[in-house]
């Protein structure tokens, strides 16, 4: 560092151009990110505008933008909720297994293995879903239809191909499992040892200790992890586009042949062949998806930021 040490130092030191440039670059990078984000909302809005102002019969489907998007939003939320219902208990169990049941030496490696689930590209989950999960789901769907057919979710004629909302939900659950498990694992590891030992010293079994000390400590993180997972599931595209056999409209039956598509999958399927107003319509749908995921993610962050308040952590 001869250049700097050679300089005389004092109040009237020459401005350090290196420092200024570097600080400017760092700040600039941050500003770029804010601009990009503003751009995402801005450009989407700009390109969605023609669809927002178009007369209803010009929009794809002929009934207006709202009629086009809301069944897709329904499908998006339905598949994601199924995924969440499956993945939440699993992720809590897996995180507990890794942090409190598995031998310490292999716990880290087990964590990596679960993380690998997140590394598999979504297109591969899509292909795998069609070839492996869908056929395997048919007997289960038949059973559900026979025995739980009185519920609106399980219609009388299950799909023979298995390319149903239920299968999409299961595959999405697998895809969001790693991120949820990672959040839970992190917070379960942070449980103060003092509280765990307090519980054990009172004569608690391992499970009672977990219920007394670990779960109360991690509750809000589990909630925020679930929301992060929900955000992922809402935006997941290719797996849904490949697996789901869709039909226009709202369909509560999750094992039938007619399934509501999701916003993301619909965009992926329609966009390459679209032009003109159809493109604007799809971008408007994307804008809706953007805001839904934005809300969910912000809610998740909010829960995280509130965590210190009601966990009582020191």
């Amino acid at each position: 560092m001869s250049t700097t040490s050679a300089k005389p130092r004092g109040v009237h030191d020459a401005p350090r151009y290196g420092d200024r440039i570097f600080a400017g670059a760092a700040t600039g990078a941050g500003v770029i990110i804010l601009l990009v984000l503003a751009g995402v909302a801005g450009f989407l809005l700009w390109q969605a505008l023609p669809a927002l102002t178009a007369s209803p019969e010009d929009v794809r489907g002929g009934k207006g933008l709202f009629e086009y998007i809301y069944p897709l939003a329904f499908g998006t939320i339905l598949t994601s909720v199924i995924a969440l219902v499956i993945a939440t208990p699993l992720s809590v169990g897996i995180a507990l297994f890794i942090t409190h049941y598995a031998p310490r030496r292999i716990a880290l490696a087990l964590g990596y293995v679960v993380d690998l689930l997140a590394a598999v590209p979504s297109i591969i989950y899509g292909l795998w879903g069609v070839y492996v999960v869908a056929p395997a789901s048919v007997p289960v769907a038949t059973w559900l239809s026979n025995w739980l057919g009185f519920l609106p979710f399980f219609g009388p004629s299950p799909s023979a191909s298995g390319r149903t909302t239920l299968v999409v939900g299961v595959v999405l659950a697998i895809m969001i499992l790693p991120v949820m498990t990672a959040v839970n694992r992190e917070v379960f590891l942070q449980t103060p040892r003092l509280h765990e030992e307090a519980s054990l010293a009172l004569g608690a079994t391992r499970w009672e200790m977990i219920r007394q000390a670990v779960l109360p400590f991690g509750r809000s993180a589990v909630i925020s992890g679930a929301m992060l997972g929900l955000g992922r599931a809402l935006g997941e595209t290719m797996a849904v586009a490949i697996i789901l056999s869709t039909a226009v409209g709202v369909h509560w039956d999750i094992i039938g042949t007619a399934n509501s598509s999701t916003i993301a999958a619909d965009i992926a399927l329609q966009f390459p062949e679209s032009s003109g107003l159809d493109v604007n319509t799809l971008i408007a749908a994307g804008l809706v998806l953007f805001f839904i995921t934005l809300l969910v993610n912000m809610a998740a962050r909010w829960v995280v930021s509130r965590r210190s308040e009601f966990s009582g952590a020191n």
């Binding site: 003092l194 030992e197 009582g312």
Partner: peptide
């Protein structure tokens, strides 16, 4: 029974 170095009541209870 055991009492620890630092007081450790369960914070959520």
């Amino acid at each position: 029974g055991m009492v620890f170095q630092r007081p450790n009541p369960f914070p959520t209870m």
